[in-house]
C-alpha cells in the first residue's frame, strides 16, 4: 500500500510542476514551409452536416467517413455513437464506429503541426475540444478542414458553421483542454502523412483484433510498402495468416522475412511454430534453434509443442541459413 501511495505522490508532484508550467502563454504558429503559396489550405470536398443539439459526434463522424467515399449520414451513425443519457458521444465509440466501417483510425501525435501536416496531405482531422473549463467541461467534436497560416486561423466544420475560421489561440486552448485528441480516419493502406511505424501498426492491429482481418491485412501491406526497412509489418502479416490457419501462406511470408531480416529472432521463432503446423519438424527445429541463438534469453527455452501432423502434407520448404552460429 505505501508503494502505491508513494507512486501516487510522485505523479502528483510531477503533475503539479507541469500544471504550473502549463500557464505559459500560447506558443506561436508553427514555423513550417507552407504547402500552398497562399499559406491557406481548405479541403472543400469534405461534406458538411449542421449538427442538431448535442450531436456533434454523429455529424463529425459522418463528415470524416463521407470524405473517404463512404455513404452514410449522421442519422445512421447516431445509433452507433450517440448516448442519449449523456447527451453526446464518447471517443471510444467514435473510434469503434469508424472501425466498423473498415477504416484505420490513426491517433495523431499531440502536436499542432501534426494536424497541419495531415491537412497538407488532404486528410481532414477529427478533433475533440473542451469548450468550457477543466473543472466544468463541455466536450465537442469538430472536423478540421483547413488552415490559414497568414491569418493564423484553423478552419473547422463545427456545430452549425461550415468553414468556420477559429483563431489559433482559441483552438489551441480548447483542444489542449481535451488532451489534444486528434485522429485521421483513412482506408487501410492509405497512410497518414505523419504515420509512425509502430503507431500505425497498432492502429492496424486494432482492426484485426476487432474482427476486420481483411482491412487489417491491407493496412499491414501498406505499412510494409512504406517502411520496407522494417521487419514488423511482415511479422504482422504472417501472424494474420497464421491466425486464419493459412499455414503455408504464413510459412512463405516468414521465410521471405528471414531472408530479408536474418537477424530478426521473433521471425525465426514464429517460422518454427508455423513449420510445425505443416508437419515439417526438422525445418521447424532448425528455425527455433536459430531464434534461440539470436536471442537466447527470450527464445532459449522455446520448444515445439508436438501438435503437428505426423507426416508433412506437402514438400517442406527450404529454410534460409541462420546468420548466428552455435554458441
Amino acid at each position: 500500500m505505501p508503494q502505491t501511495l508513494l507512486r501516487a505522490g510522485r505523479r502528483l508532484a510531477l503533475l503539479g510542476v507541469l500544471l504550473l508550467a502549463g500557464c505559459a502563454t500560447a506558443p506561436p504558429w508553427p514555423d513550417r514551409p507552407a504547402s500552398a503559396p497562399s499559406g491557406r489550405v481548405l479541403l472543400d470536398q469534405v461534406p458538411f452536416y449542421p449538427q442538431e443539439r448535442y450531436q456533434c459526434g454523429p455529424a463529425s463522424l459522418a463528415m470524416m467517413l463521407n470524405s473517404q467515399g463512404l455513404r452514410t449520414d449522421p442519422d445512421r451513425l447516431k445509433a452507433l455513437v450517440y448516448l442519449p443519457g449523456r447527451q453526446g458521444s464518447l471517443q471510444v465509440e467514435m473510434v469503434a464506429a469508424a472501425r466498423a466501417h473498415d477504416m484505420v483510425v490513426y491517433p495523431l501525435a499531440a502536436r499542432f503541426d501534426a494536424i497541419l501536416a495531415e491537412l497538407d496531405a488532404g486528410h481532414p482531422v477529427l478533433v475533440l475540444q473542451n469548450l468550457m473549463f477543466d473543472w466544468w467541461p463541455q466536450w465537442h467534436f469538430a472536423v478540421v478542414v483547413g488552415y490559414d497560416a497568414a491569418q493564423e486561423t484553423v478552419i473547422l466544420n463545427t456545430d452549425t458553421r461550415e468553414h468556420y475560421a477559429m483563431p489559433y489561440p482559441a483552438f489551441l486552448a480548447t483542444w489542449g483542454r481535451a488532451e489534444r485528441w486528434a485522429v485521421v480516419v483513412l482506408p487501410p493502406g492509405q497512410l497518414p502523412a505523419t504515420a509512425r511505424p509502430l503507431d500505425y501498426l497498432r492502429a492496424a492491429h486494432d482492426l484485426e483484433s476487432t474482427g476486420h482481418p481483411q482491412a487489417a491485412r491491407r493496412a499491414y501491406q501498406g505499412a510494409a510498402e512504406r517502411w520496407p526497412e522494417r521487419p514488423e509489418p511482415g511479422l504482422a502479416l504472417a501472424n494474420l495468416a497464421f491466425a486464419q490457419a493459412q499455414w503455408r501462406d504464413a510459412a512463405r511470408q516468414l521465410i521471405d522475412l528471414a531472408r530479408r531480416f536474418p537477424d530478426y529472432a521473433s521471425g525465426w521463432n514464429n517460422l518454427g511454430f508455423t513449420l510445425e503446423r505443416l508437419g515439417c519438424r526438422t525445418a521447424a527445429s532448425a528455425a527455433l534453434a536459430c531464434a534461440a541463438r539470436l536471442d537466447p534469453e527470450r527464445f532459449g527455452s522455446a520448444r515445439l509443442e508436438g501438435g503437428s501432423p505426423a507426416t508433412p502434407t506437402l514438400p517442406c520448404p527450404t529454410v534460409p541459413a541462420c546468420p548466428a552460429t552455435s554458441p
Binding site: 509502430l198 501498426l201 497498432r202 492491429h205 484485426e208 483484433s209 514488423e232 511479422l235 504482422a236 501472424n239 494474420l240 497464421f242 491466425a243 521473433s266 521463432n269 514464429n270 518454427g272 511454430f273 522455446a302 520448444r303 515445439l304 509443442e305
Partner: peptide, 19 residues
C-alpha cells in the same frame, strides 16, 4: 491458441518499450 508464437500485440508492445 498461439503457444510459442510472438503475437503482433506483444511484438508491438516490446518494440515500443525499446523505442
Amino acid at each position: 491458441a498461439q503457444a510459442g508464437m510472438v503475437g503482433t500485440a506483444e511484438m508491438l508492445q516490446q518494440q515500443q518499450t525499446e523505442l
